[in-house]
Amino acid sequence: MNIVVAIKHIPSIADDLPVKGNNVDFDSVDFVLNEWDEHSIEQAVLIKEAVGGTVTVVGVDLIGELDNALHLALAKGADKVVKITADDPAADSHQQAKWLAEAIKGMGADMVFAGVQASNDIDGQIGPMIAAYLDMPYIGGTSAIEVSGSTATVSKEFPGGVGMKYAVTLPFVAGVQSAPKPPRYAPVSKVRQMAQTATVEKVAPSGEASSGLAFKKMAPPVVTGHAEMIEGSPKEVAAKIVELLKSRGLA
């Protein structure tokens, strides 16, 4: 089984997001692995553990710091890692999808996983676009994927506690919502060992694409109101709530 996982490096929101002009100030922000990609790596490794095969993780190196994420992937069980040396922190998801698809093309993938979305743009386009470029079917929002022979059973969860299982013939592209198990923890000693011993394959970006969207303005959200904490015993709090509701004409 040859599984390729396409990952995305995104600005961290652990700090206040710095803004410069009409985009993020990429020079003063840390980049981290997209949260959903952690799930698609986990999903790929779980399948490998179940039926054998190899897991290749590939991502666009936007600021020259993707290695950390790739070493982490190796420590979690990936076999091979590839970075597309783009050095363009502002590359949008359409552009990244094109570069990724070009890099994945020759890999002979049975399955390609991508996180169903990323928190920096939330447009969920990378998976479907890779599928389009590779001319493979796409299934998004998966919560579990199991493979047997040339078919995969793909589970999806819908609101209201409804689940659905699909039989999908390989090859295909999946947008992973979550792995069936929480992504495993990679001990730092393993990650560091990978950093010392593993080789990261480099690929030049090839092809062009654009979402056609342009940023008009980027600014921190304006705080319009704030929560008011009501203090006191449960009785006092209840009395104050009633009073408030009355004063606003709601009771």
């Binding site: 961290s12 652990a14 700090d15 206040d16 840390d30 981290v32 929480p182 923890y185 730092v188 990650v191």
Partner: peptide
Amino acid sequence: SGVQTALQSLATNGNWMGKGKRL
């Protein structure tokens, strides 16, 4: 899961609370 989240944050941010270093 709580321990894992804390450790991951410690590895990336140097603190267990998921806060950026600059904060």
